[in-house]
């Protein structure tokens, strides 16, 4: 019997029929946050879906594109398109990588003569929380996480993906989770990729404001759909020896009683 069934949740309302989901882990998560990837796999499999991981995959090209290195970005895009050819659904646990694909691939494709391939793949690409709420039709994924949590909606999730209240809806279904609203939640945390290094002082000034908002909520955990922002915020919190820490939303949704 499935875990959710033991909790008495109506199967029909929460689950689409099994889907073969191709995971695009992203280079960043692959290298620095493999726990997020493991959590995504756990959630999706728990919901009865099959996850595949195409080992040839690497990156979406975001860092190169945003920093002005377009030929490299186009080569990486070409590789992404090849790697995921024929995929049914592509799950990406990073809002900024999805934004890169949705907002910039069409233009890059026009320059590289790959409009067809890009147009074909775009409808298949889902950010992890989008995949759950929109494609798989679930908000209750059967998680238990007895902590107070606030949500940092990254700029890409907010303005490019128009995440709306999707992540919040998912969190509010988690057993034991105390959801605390983040003040000034539309403010950028100051990460911005190479910005965090090129303009380190301004970036950390922005971070200070964000940390103040997080600490104001009193939450133990700050979550979000982008490990890039979370690494930046978490790094600042850790430096300040604050008690709050950052955890990717997939890891919260993967948590079960006695197993975080």
């Amino acid at each position: 019997m499935h875990l959710l069934d033991t909790l008495g949740v109506d199967v029909e309302t929460r689950r689409s029929s099994p889907v073969l989901i191709s995971l695009f882990i992203t280079c960043y998560n692959d290298t620095l946050f493999p726990g997020t990837g493991r959590a995504v796999v756990r959630v999706l499999e728990r919901l009865g879906h099959t996850v595949e991981f195409r080992e040839s995959q690497t990156c979406c090209g975001q860092m190169h594109y945003n920093t002005g290195y377009h030929p490299e970005a186009v080569r990486i895009m070409r590789k992404f398109l090849q790697d995921f050819r024929g995929a049914e659904v592509i799950c990406v646990p990073s809002a900024s990588c999805v934004a890169m694909i949705r907002d910039h691939y069409p233009k890059m494709a026009a320059e590289a003569g790959m409009e067809r391939e890009v147009a074909d793949i775009l409808p298949l690409v889902f950010e992890f929380t989008e995949l759950l709420t929109d494609k798989l039709g679930v908000t209750d994924v059967g998680a238990t996480y007895p902590h107070s949590v606030t949500l940092h909606t990254s700029c890409h999730a907010l303005r490019s993906l128009h995440a709306g209240d999707r992540p919040q809806r998912l969190l509010q279904e988690v057993r034991g989770l105390d959801y605390l609203q983040l003040p000034a939640s539309d403010q950028c945390c100051g990460f911005g990729g190479t910005f965090a290094i090129k303009n380190a002082e301004v970036s950390t000034a922005m971070l200070s404001e964000k940390m103040r908002s997080i600490l104001e909520t009193g939450a133990e955990v700050c979550t979000g759909a982008d490990n890039s922002c979370l690494m930046h915020i978490g790094g600042g919190l850790s430096r300040q020896r604050a008690t709050a820490r950052c955890v990717h939303i997939a890891e919260i949704l993967a948590s079960e009683e006695g197993h975080e």
């Binding site: 620095l32 493999p34 991981f53 930046h232 978490g234 790094g235």
Partner: peptide
């Protein structure tokens, strides 16, 4: 102003 996360011993792949 920021600590780096601990580098994992195993990548996702």
């Amino acid at each position: 102003a920021r600590d780096l996360p601990a580098i994992p011993t195993e990548s996702f792949r």
